[in-house]
């Protein structure tokens, strides 16, 4: 049985798809068979970030409608053979997703995979509700600013009450906080909420802090999940996140303003 992870936030543009791509790649690199599903039907993005947009034949909605078999629609990643991508449809809308259809696809995937990562669309409408409904774990992606924190809080309320686990009275979804686009420098200037501020409001288990980084945009533009950019701060931060998710005890990084090294000071780096 696969563990189903939803990457969600409520608010748009906070880094859900970047996170889904990075975490699914990270899990696959650790040797787990991982599928990542784009639930953002109508606005598909995940295939771009994963760099497989030119290999899409069938999509999630085709599978739900029985127009294609699951293995026809799954795209195997070229960099890691444990990772498969199920792209969203560009031509349909989110009403094409049915609860039974999504449940069936997840059920079928569960037999073959260790982890299923659901990349939720923004908002709290149908697509987002279905992305989280079957989840076992939720990674709540939040930017350090008030409206994102508020939306995440709202999403947490929905996770606690509208999921299948909640409806069946089972053990609740495990919720993790992932703080993205964090800039210790701007926190120091008082322009951004600190980790403590966000934790004060959300009081969640902190899975990691991803620093604001040029590497993320570069990675998206070139279709390479940022976790593969091992030299970058964001790439390392995502590696830490995956290790933490898998139960390793990894110290948090990128939270404090780093002191400039002697070299840095000498060369103004």
């Amino acid at each position: 049985m696969a563990r189903i992870i939803v990457v969600t936030s409520g608010k748009g543009g906070v880094g859900k798809t970047t996170t889904s791509a990075a975490i699914s790649m990270g899990l696959a690199l650790k040797g787990y068979r991982t599928a990542v599903i784009d639930f953002d039907v109508g606005l598909r993005n995940l295939d771009l970030i994963m760099g497989c947009e030119r290999r899409v034949v069938y999509d999630f909605v085709n599978v739900i409608n029985g127009e294609a078999a699951l293995n026809q629609a799954l795209i195997k990643d070229k960099r890691c053979d444990k990772l498969f991508i199920l792209p969203a449809s560009q031509t349909r809308d989110k009403d094409s997703l049915t609860s039974e259809g999504v449940g069936k696809v997840l059920g079928d995937l569960s037999k073959d995979f260790d982890y299923i990562v659901c990349d939720s669309p923004a908002g709290i409408e149908r697509g987002a509700m279905l992305a989280m409904y079957y989840a076992d774990d939720a990674i709540v992606v939040t930017n350090p600013e008030v409206s994102s924190v508020r939306d995440s809080d709202r999403m947490l309320g929905i996770l606690a009450s509208k999921s299948r686990r909640a409806e069946r009275g089972e053990e609740p979804i495990k919720e993790y906080l992932l703080l993205t686009r964090y800039s210790p420098h701007r926190v120091k200037l008082g322009e951004m909420l600190s980790v403590e501020d966000v934790q004060d409001i959300l009081s969640l288990h902190l899975l990691g802090v991803i620093p604001e980084s040029k590497a993320v945009l570069n990675a998206s533009n070139s279709g390479v999940p940022v976790i593969l950019d091992e030299k970058s701060d964001a790439g390392q931060a995502f590696s830490d996140v995956v290790r933490r998710y898998l139960g390793e005890d990894v110290t948090h990084r990128f939270i404090e303003l780093e002191k400039k090294s002697l070299f840095g000071r000498l060369f103004g780096g």
């Binding site: 939306d151 809080d153 709202r154 947490l156 309320g157 929905i158 606690a160």
Partner: peptide
């Protein structure tokens, strides 16, 4: 015992 979240 759980936090009461925004919108609840």
């Amino acid at each position: 015992e759980q936090p009461v979240r925004s919108g609840q």
